[in-house]
Write a protein that binds this DNA or RNA. Sequence first.
DNA 1: GACTTCCACGCAGCTAAGCTACGGGCTACG
DNA 2: CGTAGCCCGTAGCTTAGCTGCGTGGAAGTC
Lengths: 72, 72
Amino acid sequence: MLQKKLGLRIAGLRRSQSLTQEQLAEVISCSVEFISLVERGVNAPSVAGLEKFAKALNVEVRDLFTFEGSRR
Amino acid sequence: MLQKKLGLRIAGLRRSQSLTQEQLAEVISCSVEFISLVERGVNAPSVAGLEKFAKALNVEVRDLFTFEGSRR
DNA sequence: GACTTCCACGCAGCTAAGCTACGGGCTACG
DNA sequence: CGTAGCCCGTAGCTTAGCTGCGTGGAAGTC
């Protein structure tokens, strides 16, 4: 549920930075496969992982949970 | 790092709702000990767990990651 | 057609961490 | 004293976070 939206959000942010999954994986220092899993909502990163994602995407963690559907 | 702040945030939200750890644990249907661990920043809940916490505290997940220190 | 880049996806595996139960201990309050 | 609310350590089960490998497909370029 949540991870699905989270994945889409991350994928969107990544694309908006013109990064490939591979590049993002390198920044985060994790596997490309994992990026794929996360973006598809199969896996959700841990809280520690969220921090990395946010940093790599130049946003704050709370922004990762900010969707269109959310208020505001 | 993050989980520390997250824990404080959750504890703060819980208190502001005048809930005890026990009551919160019941709403989330998890153990009281776990609430304690989370609030102290020893453990961080999983993404699925975050959803439960947010729902129990009547906020959105993104609000759990909204600290004083954060921008805005 | 052949090649490359980007990505989805299944499978198999390790280990870290989420989560629980039990037991003890401290403070505050009636 | 007794109870409520919380902290804390230890020990343990179990899930899922995360990896590697290998495949294959869509789109672009030459």
